[in-house]
Design a protein around this nucleic acid. Sequence first.
RNA 1: GCCGGGGUGGCGGAACUGGCAGACGCGCAUGACUUAGGAUCAUGUGGGUUAUCCCGUGAAGGUUCAAGUCCUUUCCCCGGCACCA
Length: 823
Amino acid sequence: MDYNFKKIEAKWQEKWKKLSRFKVDFKNVKKKYYCLMMFPYPSGTLHVGHGRNYIIGDALSRYKVKRGFEVFHPMGWDAFGLPAENYAIKHQVHPRTSTLKNIEACKSQFLKWGILYDWEHELFTCEPSYYKWTQWLFLKFYEKSLAYRKHAPVNWCPSCATVLANEQVVNNACERCDTEVQKKELKQWFFKITDYADRLLKDLSLLTHWPERVKSMQENWIGRSEGVNIIFKGADFKGGVECYTTRPDTLYGVTFVALAAEHRLLETFNLSPEVKKFIDEVKGQVVRPEDKFEKKGVFLGKHIINPVNRDKIPLWVTNYAIMEYGTGAVMAVPAHDQRDFEFAQEYKLPIKVVIQNEDKSLREESLKEAFTEVGVQADGGPFNGKKSSEVVSLMRSFLEEKGLGKAQVRYRLRDWLISRQRYWGAPIPIIYCDSCGELPVPEKDLPVILPMDVAFKAEGESPLARETSFVNTKCPQCHKQARRETDTMDTFVDSSWYYLRYLSAHEDKKIFDSERVNQWLPVDQYIGGVEHAILHLLYSRFFTKALYDCGLIHFQEPFQNLFTQGMICKKSPNTGKLEKMSKSKGNVVSPDELIEKYGADTERLYTIFIGPPEKDAEWNDDAVAGCFRFIGRIWDFVLEHKNSYIDVSFKDIKDDVLNPDVKNVLRLTHKVIQDVTNSLEDQFHFNTAVSKIMEYSNEIRGLEYKTQEDCKVLSCALSTLLQLLSPLIPHVTEELWEILGHKKSIFETPWPEYDKEKIQTDTITIPVQVNGKLRVTLEVAASINQEDLKKAALEHPRIQPFIVGKSIKKVIVVPKRLINVVV
RNA sequence: GCCGGGGUGGCGGAACUGGCAGACGCGCAUGACUUAGGAUCAUGUGGGUUAUCCCGUGAAGGUUCAAGUCCUUUCCCCGGCACCA
């Protein structure tokens, strides 16, 4: 075997650069295919786990090229952001320098993997030519009141020295560095994503080709709930309390109201020292414990009136009612809410059953836990006897009619905090003037350039604030001295619209060419990691909807099909556990070493064959060798027969003169085309496509091809084999294609076509079951009629013993499938 | 607790609208070629077994001529949300 992968791969990587078939022609929109990878954060060297994403994308776009699509497969760099800045601080370099260096390293890695991008449309989010338009979008949002500044409690990461968006806080810690976040009251810039909560939720149903997992995560994050705000008047104080509930059917069972410690009403009361002490304690709990904690509260000495039955209800302040949800006041129904139940038991508060179970056995005095299921209304109110689930909406309308409450839809989603007190990001284009106030930077003055020569160490306020030459500017309105906003934007703003910019990456007069964008989007296939399920994917959907509302684009969802590939894991020598590849875990497999030993095609094949691409997979060095062997066998097989190869197609073969074995090869060839095509078309079954090709190659390699006609079949088989493998292992297939005498690149030839008729066989194998158990398989002519088939089965010597002396109840004959004899 | 996904050999995983469970690969075993084998090739490989037999897709029931696949109950694993009222 003289499979010199190094030479072959270098040769073709060079040749492909000149191949126009891999460059997009935007005008050819008839069969367009926009294949988008989540663009990388250039943070250093890539490992084989990263490779999976790009290899899948490359295989897909090469396949689509062969299917005759005009494929747009661009690449760019998510180049602003904290990791680059932190690295720069640590190593005393400018983040731009280190980032550009990393980008070069990534690019050469892509090249070595044989991944083809249309580099003419490359973009860098950290360059003024890009962030000018990020700033322009900010102004657009500002104009539409979608960008605004407010004083609010925000999440502060002390280690990153900046505020974070809600989406970047995981278990009360910074998602990046895992430091516990602090709550701070600060004036910050927000995007009004909550205006889109409803549409972001509803339109998830349009995304039929998104993983359920991702949709469910977004749904949970948006967190819609339908309820009522019910007004309870004070019995012994002025005003009242508004409670939000999703269970108005339990209104008759309210026995107390629980206020959050931060509730405004408390400020209007004359509170005893003990109550004040309690409130301060609860407020002082920096982190409200996530898991079970003891419910506590104090009675305020005040009462309110239940609007439907005039009950006088005590008012409590508790640690389990929270201000951030609903109205910060809970109408507590201990009989039908477990939390209220626990609290009522602790403080000996009354429990009132107003919904009965099926056998009407719920008794207040013997209740062990709250009854939270659907039951029958038993409250003495107007809906008595009705199903409680129906009463929910009946009660809601009833309360609205009487002016006692108001239907409310609430979302968990909060506005997106986009200010960052860090250097390496796009400056927020706002100017503050003492006389004119807050003003947007005029469009003609964009971009607001991020100064390069800055002491960028983060110390709690933006490093830009120390740069007087940046801060000081003229008011665009009155031209007096004014100050610039010094915060930069969250990098997720940059990445929320890059897929639009690819289409006009070098346009400097406008953000993008709307006509072209409308023709080429939505993206036909988006591929990336599931870690972006909420952050990037939700933000991008929001941007698309906002841009739609601005009239800039005609579509409302950016990504038609989403594919989230699984991670590649390996046992860590440090922990002994299976972990995601990372330097700190010591379980990284370097593509360089792998390519050195086996070549890029082997890495590509193994990466695709490792398992279902959407699932996490364990890297196995032995199995890599298996893939290398497979390529070697293909290499030997093609070389062995290259002299018999003739450039023919299926229609040149006279199949009636073939011997059965060779005829079968012809049949299998049609079949493998069908199978592989289906696997690639049908939701990314790349791994089974490889198995099918392996199986096929095992079948055809063992035979002898003697006659002229045999050689034609062999030639078709060889060409099919290479065609089918070409998107997956492009270098070696190109080389073999050339060795067989072809002048054109294999990627300039179309994907093979199969003939369904030719897949049919003359004889078929029919399993024969007795009482559902397989007893024998029968070789019969495909054209056999049901009666003959049945007869053949019943007379078979291996079936006879099972039926002799027994009465045959029924014989099931499924044409071309099986026979089942029931005795 | 709620929402989503998933449990199949020693391992990664196949199995179309219910129709031969375990494709393909790894590993393992035996053999061949070899001075050698951690290279390559061939053969075998779910378990039990003398078997042409029996058992087998997390568990238990059910529907069906037939269930990994459909229905009911249940256990476990992964992801998301969560004292969310």
